[in-house]
Amino acid sequence: MDLTLLAKAIAVIGAGIGIAGGSIGIGLIGAKALDAIARQPQEKKDIRTNMILMAALIEGLAFFGAIIALLVIFMN
């Protein structure tokens, strides 16, 4: 009982770390995309599409971590 509680706690911490990494990546993407849009406003559409694509790919990895953590947490 005690051990499962520890595992769940570690899983929560792991999910937090994973999501933190993902959010740093998405933040970098957003910053660079805004930079690029400010520099070349006529390429706004392409940059936005690629930004969403990249953000979604990173977000997928973050969700991967979060869902593995969820699996551990709700495992009986």
Partner: peptide, 10 residues
Amino acid sequence: IVLSLRLFAN
């Protein structure tokens, strides 16, 4: 797999 997980998780 990530495509499906993203929508589901969101």
